[in-house]
Design a protein around this nucleic acid. Structure first.
Length: 590
RNA sequence: GCAACCGUAGUCUAACGGAUAGAACACAGGACUCCGACUCCUGCAAUGUGGGUUCGAUUCCCGCCGGUUGCACCA
């Protein structure tokens, strides 16, 4: 089903053409003066120069061609040369009627050329709990993935675990001190290792920071850890077995935590999965003459002549020959290309890594790891700040665990719900609090442009008023309540059909609904989930406005009432589809 | 020092180069015999600064001021 904007533009383009102007001037946009019109075309202003004619004269001609067109109830020319349009209510009702026949997509067409897109987000570290620094990547990445999928693209989410390097050696060393008898430490052992991990997740989460702290004070300890890391990476059997236990235990825990955030990944690959690709990749870079030794390290130049500043070379190997972050990221590109051949890889990463990814992308392109037909996108996000405008911290000034943040907000929501006494059942209240709390966190984040820093204000985000997640959910719940009352009225014999709007507020609501496809499409094109938020906020407002002015269930004319109910149901379905794209859902009651 | 990003009502935030810069919170008023008033309506209030390009600039270019961040062996 064509977007309503395209249908309108088609008519206007033809009117331009019939008046002797290029069709392209007939581009139509949503009105930025809703008091004057619903849609507008500024083409006459642009055409004035080419045709050496006053813009309003052109607009007059086009408007004349459009009068009488069944799509519009108004098409007028306004100085200096705007073309103002209002849709015919019957046309609009017909359009919505078509939308509601498509219960899944509401007429939103999928992309003409579906792409295979890998999306790298999450980025948690093994053996370390998720903290608030991981929140934005998870929320934004998940939403982009869902929006892309809705648009018909093949979206492959990869969590990209931090599971390589000294941290593993530290854990192995510390565990060896605590439990030296474990067979993983017997070098001559060649039997089967036990399936059960020799530690729990909470032990693991305690072992790592302890080991990390020790290594900073104790030089010998650090040596041991580095030695363990080296042996692990060079294939010591018992250590590798320990690594896989660490991975298993951690990933199980991470999955649970991400599940609570309604975030999921298609791939649970990590830095360790890229390691096997490193030697060949490095060798090829050397053979092709891209990599050379500078100050002891192996690097690839990524400067370009158009650069305003010096972009340092991309380091491939450290001067001691060891790999580093860059090496792993490049090798990750190798297997992604080899196994998936994506059209695009999107990195949802902290924007502070902008320069770093510029280096990696350039290096990957220059050395031929990716071809021209694969796009590499850096989708940097800003910092989540506290109310003081500084990076969000606990009251003590430490890094807050994600779990603590979530449970704090769950509790806050629970208190609110209990105050309202809307849900007498405690269990339901707890469950609902979780759902609403997640909407507060996610909407609070996603309603901002991803690239900007934003202030995480629990009080504001959890409010039921204003541009918040809970407000959106409240609107949905309210509609559900009305709909279920309608069901109980036993009106099955009445034909449900959307009728032409009779009031301004009804028409505004219908106009908002009709924009659905364009809004989602645009949000994906700009990888901008905040556009989905802006859209549903407008839709929820239009609904509440309409609701306030219109008696729905007490409307006496059955057909009109059924028409209202149709409109409400369509609004609800679209709102729910949109919040699913944002990664949260609505409760039945709240 | 060099570079990147960002400066919009008191606060928080939006706007393909287009009309009177749009919301939210807060504040000041107002609206419920009614489907969930956690709603709705009215008002107050903003583009850091100086130039340039343009018929037209929050948007593009340059200078200044302010903030954030990044600048080779961490990830």
């Amino acid at each position: 089903m064509k977007k309503i904007l395209d249908l309108i533009a088609k008519e206007v383009e033809e009117a331009f053409f019939d008046s002797g102007y290029e069709k392209s001037y007939g581009k139509v946009t949503l009105s930025n003066r809703p008091d004057l019109c619903e849609y507008q075309c500024n083409g006459a202003l642009a055409a004035a120069k080419q045709y050496k004619k006053a813009p309003f004269l052109i607009a007059d001609e086009v408007a004349a061609k459009l009068t009488g067109n069944q799509m519009f109830s108004m098409a007028e020319s306004v100085r200096p040369g705007f073309l103002n349009l209002k849709l015919d209510p019957s046309f609009l009702a017909g359009y919505l009627q078509e939308m509601r026949k498509d219960e899944e997509r509401f007429g939103c067409e999928t992309a003409k050329e579906p792409k295979k897109i890998m999306i790298d987000y999450g980025g948690p570290n093994v053996a370390k709990p998720l903290h608030i620094g991981h929140l934005r990547s998870a929320i934004i990445g998940e939403s982009i993935k869902r929006i892309g999928r809705f648009m018909g693209h093949e979206m492959i989410g990869d969590v990209h675990l931090g599971d390589w390097g000294l941290q593993m050696g530290l854990i192995i060393t510390e565990l060896g001190i605590r439990k030296p008898d474990l067979i993983y430490y017997q070098e001559d052992f060649d039997g089967e290792y036990p399936k059960e991990a020799p530690f729990t997740i909470s032990e693991l989460e305690e072992i790592y920071p302890t080991a990390s702290a020790k290594s900073k004070e104790d030089e010998a300890y650090k040596e041991a850890a580095m030695q363990a890391t080296y042996e692990l990476q060079n294939g010591r059997r018992g250590y590798q077995e320990l690594l896989s236990h660490i991975l298993n235990v951690s990933v199980t825990d991470l999955k649970k935590n991400y599940e609570n955030l309604n975030v999921s990944f298609d791939l649970w690959k990590g830095e360790s999965d890229a390691q096997p690709y490193i030697p060949d990749m490095v060798q090829k870079m050397k053979d092709d003459g891209y990599a050379y030794v500078s100050e002891g390290a192996l690097v690839v130049d990524v400067k370009e002549e158009t650069d305003a500043k010096e972009i340092p070379p991309c380091m491939i190997l450290k001067s001691d020959g060891a790999s580093l972050y860059n090496t792993t990221d490049l090798a990750t590109i190798v297997w992604r290309m080899q196994d998936y051949h994506p059209d695009e890889i999107i990195y949802v990463v902290d924007k502070r890594q902008d320069l770093y990814f510029t280096q990696v992308f350039r290096c990957a392109r220059k050395t031929g790891l990716v071809g021209k037909d694969t796009k590499l996108t850096f989708q940097g996000f800003g910092t989540m700040n506290g109310k003081d405008g500084k990076p969000f911290k606990t009251r003590e000034g430490g890094v807050m665990r994600l779990e603590s943040l979530v449970s704090e907000i769950n509790e806050e929501m629970y208190q609110k719900i209990m105050e309202n006494k809307s849900l007498p059942d405690e269990e339901e209240a707890r469950e609902t609090a979780k759902i609403v709390a997640l909407s507060a966190i996610k909407y609070g984040d996603l309603s901002n442009q991803a690239s900007k820093d934003y202030i995480f204000d629990i009080e504001r985000f959890t409010s039921f008023e204003g541009n918040t997640g809970p407000y959106i959910l409240y609107t949905i719940v309210r509609i559900k309540s009305i709909l279920s009352k309608y069901e109980a009225m036993d009106c099955k014999h009445v034909k449900e059909q959307i009728l032409p709007a009779k009031s301004e507020s009804e028409k505004s609501l219908m106009l908002e609904i009709s924009r659905f496809g364009a809004a989602v499409e645009n949000a994906f094109a700009e990888t901008a989930p905040h556009k989905v938020c802006a859209y549903i906020y407008g839709l929820a407002n239009a609904l509440n406005h309409f609701y306030h002015e219109t008696k729905i269930l007490s409307e006496e004319e059955e057909a009109v009432r059924a028409g209202y109910v149709c409109l409400l149901r369509l609004t609800k379905d679209i709102l729910e589809t949109c919040i699913d794209l944002l990664g949260f859902r609505a409760p039945e009651r709240m």
